[in-house]
Design a protein around this nucleic acid. Sequence first.
DNA 1: GTTCCGCATGAATCGATAG
DNA 2: ACTATCGATTCATGCGGAA
Lengths: 290, 290
Amino acid sequence: MEQLLLMPPRTTEPPETDSAFNRLYHGNCEALLPTLPDACVDLIVTSPPYADQRKNSYGGIAPDDCVAWFLPIAAQLQRVLKPTGSFILNIKERVVNGERHTYVIELILAMWQQGWLWTEEYNWHKKNAYPGKWSNRFRDAWERCIHFTRQRKFAMYQEAVMVPVGDWAEGRLRNLSETDRRRDESRAKSGFGKNVSNWVGREMVYPTNVLHMATETGNRNHSAAFHVALPLWFIKLFTQEGDVVLDPFIGSGTTAVAAKQLGRRWIGIEKEASYIQIAQQRIREAVLPT
Amino acid sequence: MEQLLLMPPRTTEPPETDSAFNRLYHGNCEALLPTLPDACVDLIVTSPPYADQRKNSYGGIAPDDCVAWFLPIAAQLQRVLKPTGSFILNIKERVVNGERHTYVIELILAMWQQGWLWTEEYNWHKKNAYPGKWSNRFRDAWERCIHFTRQRKFAMYQEAVMVPVGDWAEGRLRNLSETDRRRDESRAKSGFGKNVSNWVGREMVYPTNVLHMATETGNRNHSAAFHVALPLWFIKLFTQEGDVVLDPFIGSGTTAVAAKQLGRRWIGIEKEASYIQIAQQRIREAVLPT
DNA sequence: GTTCCGCATGAATCGATAG
DNA sequence: ACTATCGATTCATGCGGAA
């Protein structure tokens, strides 16, 4: 059970008084989460290795065992989350024997019994869905991002994710020339331009609970569960600079990359040594916005 | 309990031998569904008046009572559906006391116990979500279209809903005005251009399980739950000409309009007299494709 | 015939107020 | 305390009218 200190705190911020942050922990989160203090995390973002989804490289959990396996972890997550914090669970039920398996909705009900509030379910529309052809279904192009909270009142910074008026994901911006429009589209798509001031003067609106994002493609060294744009969006929405983001199944480190890019502190847990290597590399290369 | 014969069968098809079809039934579906024979329906498409959503004009069901209220209806629907048929349930859980209510996922589990297969969950992305601003959530821009079947093998005609290849929204319509582009985008995305011949010569691909459609607004005489494009899509996908489409909560008749436009037979049930009037009018005005 | 602009209209939700 | 009602908030769509 290693504990790896990856990066020193950025010098532009007060020095960390607690070395538990900005670290990757190598081990099972069932064992590691109990070592964290109560209410030390502002946001949990994760995509669990559910239902054999990462079977080859991770050793996934069988669909029927998902709920029983995850509930004790969810209890720990509830403990380490601040009362005003949020938990974003990116998940999608697998097809088992021709049917959608029920473990996700059973998990929602079980976590609700556990005391979690099922505040919202965001919808991640994957614009580049995995290819394939089946006789009984089409390509699956969406996943759930389930938003659990501990309280009805929680931290949310909606202004941080405002978008230009119009359907920005579809590429429509009013009153701009075609050239301007395309440039601005690409800037918006690439992600969340560092400066919202880029959009000053344009009409900004709040987004909806549907996120249009592509999945990550073409990465040779790792298979990321989600594109960095996904944790970026939720981290901006539910935390401020210096807040703490936790991913108990961090895999190739995407959540930590997003947290570092946004100047948040982070905690990552991963049990696979091979993922730890890749995550270290990616987090090291992640750049802070200038 | 009226029974209204609306339209004679179209002359280009064999005359109806069973006058039970192409009719609006006025009454509660709890009472009317048992009068239908077994296995007479190819597709059920409906959006129930769940959870007070039509309270003012319909008298909705309280969220806590939804499952118990719907289960006997679901049992009847299972009986009247052909073994190879499909049931599309358009529904979304309301926010109750700051949380998403659990009646939808409880219903899925209960219907699964009842023998339904939870084959798929299509995602309707509502491009024009209802406006609003709240401190704890964004505008809700998606609904579930839950696909239940009786068997693992069922009728599905995927070719009927193929769409032109390529991301039509990006770059291909540079030289058109914004208005033209918007119109053409919506036509392409919805995939129901009146004339598929518009797309002849272009490469066609299968869609995903995410549907991009607007809700119907601006209609003076009725407030349609879903745009006609929604039942059109599922009717094309799961039925052939002459097949039977059932909507047990047909409201303003949208499902029947779609079925008539596609040359399918239909059965509509509605308990509100005011909706019957509107539906009659809309169905009468619906035109068959030339 | 087109294109553009203005305006009414929603299967909503929250928070405050009133009973 | 607990429930019912009402105002405020917000934006894509499609229509009509005008250029």
